[in-house]
Simulated assay, not measured.
Amino acid sequence: MKLTPLGLLLAFTFTFTLTAQAQVTIESPRGGWRNSAGAQEQYSQEVNYPASSVNMQEGQSETAQIRGRIANAPKGKPAKLVVNGVAMPLEVDENGRYARPYGFGSGANSVEVRSPDGRARARTQFVDTYEGKTQSRLRVVLSWDSPGTDIDLHVISPDGGHAWYGNRVMKNGGALDVDVTTGYGPEIFSSANPPKGNYHVYVNYFGSGENQSILTVAQVAIITNENTPREKQQIFRVPMRAAGELTLVKSFVFP
């Protein structure tokens, strides 16, 4: 059968569309059952100023990382990572690769990665059977929707602890993983044994380069008792209009 010029054009367009469509692959974590006992799982990440972003430290165990590739990924935008129902941005390099550490709890976990344009996705589920694993009872995830901006997470605990980029590890064990200064985030605070009482979560618009008035929307997810029947998730979105702005996102009592 011979194709008309119009038919050839349509066939070429269809082939090009299929070829150019993003394809998402998750290399880690793998689905199924596993036991992470004895694994080297680092939570805090290296921070290098003046520019810092989410990074994977050398020696990080396979059980505590999210890694893969998005083929034909659109440039200039982050992908989206969804861990146990909580969405956050995911940086993709020029080759379409992504890698970041993540402190998974024991029990059932799910990871979904979506391409920057949202048209392609991959999902995996696994169960960690290590019952002695340190479990996050309080996790706070900050992300925002603009590149080249610096939004900071501040968490104040009942015992007077203050986790922020200048003091990432509290005396009570709560810790902030990284200070992201290049846009999007995420910055994640986590505590395995949070003191009981009143908590306050703030976000601070630290800066955005020469233009100090880029409107950006911060998203804060607060997760308590993760991976248990008592798990609770709350999502808050806050518009940030100018550098120097400090906003109280949520005050709450734990437990």
Rank of each mutant, 00 (worst) to 15 (best):
residue 118 G to K: 09
residue 218 A to N: 11
residue 240 M to T: 02
residue 52 S to Y: 12
residue 247 T to G: 00
residue 107 G to F: 14
residue 193 N to V: 00
residue 178 V to L: 03
residue 51 A to W: 15
residue 131 E to H: 11
residue 187 E to Q: 05
residue 244 G to S: 02
residue 133 K to N: 08
residue 241 R to G: 13
residue 90 L to E: 12
residue 165 Y to S: 01
residue 206 F to K: 15
residue 222 I to K: 01
residue 99 A to C: 08
residue 180 V to F: 02
residue 133 K to G: 03
residue 5 P to C: 05
residue 159 D to A: 10
residue 96 G to Y: 04
residue 146 S to H: 00
residue 236 F to D: 10
residue 1 M to W: 06
residue 46 E to M: 06
residue 196 K to A: 13
residue 194 P to M: 13
residue 31 G to V: 09
residue 219 Q to I: 15
residue 182 T to H: 04
residue 126 F to D: 08
residue 89 P to G: 05
residue 250 K to S: 01
residue 174 G to L: 07
residue 49 Y to H: 10
residue 218 A to L: 08
residue 33 W to H: 07
residue 154 H to K: 05
residue 184 Y to P: 09
residue 225 N to R: 02
residue 125 Q to F: 04
residue 100 R to K: 15
residue 187 E to F: 06
residue 17 T to C: 14
residue 20 A to Q: 11
residue 136 S to K: 09
residue 48 N to H: 09
residue 21 Q to W: 10
residue 81 L to D: 02
residue 113 V to K: 01
residue 99 A to S: 13
residue 175 A to T: 09
residue 240 M to Y: 03
residue 47 V to K: 13
residue 104 F to K: 02
residue 223 I to G: 04
residue 123 R to T: 09
residue 28 S to R: 12
residue 238 V to K: 09
residue 52 S to F: 07
residue 74 P to S: 14
residue 177 D to V: 08
residue 174 G to Y: 01
residue 130 Y to E: 13
residue 174 G to M: 06
residue 109 N to G: 03
residue 27 E to C: 07
residue 63 T to W: 11
residue 52 S to W: 12
residue 20 A to D: 04
residue 90 L to C: 06
residue 144 W to C: 04
residue 43 Y to W: 06
residue 190 S to H: 05
residue 59 G to A: 02
residue 173 G to C: 04
residue 178 V to G: 04
residue 37 A to H: 14
residue 209 G to S: 11
residue 239 P to A: 11
residue 33 W to S: 11
residue 120 A to W: 01
residue 54 V to K: 15
residue 174 G to P: 07
residue 5 P to R: 04
residue 158 P to L: 03
residue 229 P to R: 03
residue 49 Y to T: 05
residue 195 P to V: 00
residue 8 L to T: 13
residue 65 Q to E: 06
residue 194 P to E: 13
residue 65 Q to K: 10
residue 90 L to V: 09
residue 36 S to N: 01
residue 203 V to N: 08
residue 144 W to D: 14
residue 94 E to F: 07
residue 2 K to I: 12
residue 187 E to L: 05
residue 15 T to K: 11
residue 73 A to E: 07
residue 246 L to P: 00
residue 69 R to S: 05
residue 49 Y to C: 02
residue 11 A to I: 06
residue 46 E to P: 12
residue 1 M to K: 10
residue 214 I to G: 06
residue 113 V to I: 05
residue 48 N to C: 03
residue 227 N to W: 11
residue 173 G to N: 07
residue 20 A to E: 07
residue 137 R to M: 12
residue 180 V to M: 02
residue 37 A to W: 10
residue 210 E to I: 15
residue 113 V to R: 01
residue 249 V to G: 01
residue 5 P to D: 10
residue 133 K to S: 06
residue 199 Y to I: 00
residue 93 D to T: 07
residue 196 K to R: 14
residue 251 S to L: 05
residue 122 A to H: 01
residue 228 T to V: 01
residue 167 N to W: 07
residue 177 D to Y: 09
residue 10 L to G: 06
residue 55 N to H: 07
residue 52 S to G: 11
residue 253 V to P: 00
residue 92 V to E: 03
residue 15 T to C: 14
residue 164 W to E: 11
residue 243 A to G: 11
residue 189 F to Y: 10
residue 238 V to T: 15
residue 221 A to K: 02
residue 181 T to D: 08
residue 83 V to E: 02
residue 155 V to F: 12
residue 46 E to Y: 05
residue 88 M to P: 02
residue 251 S to K: 11
residue 64 A to E: 10
residue 214 I to K: 14
residue 215 L to K: 05
residue 56 M to L: 15
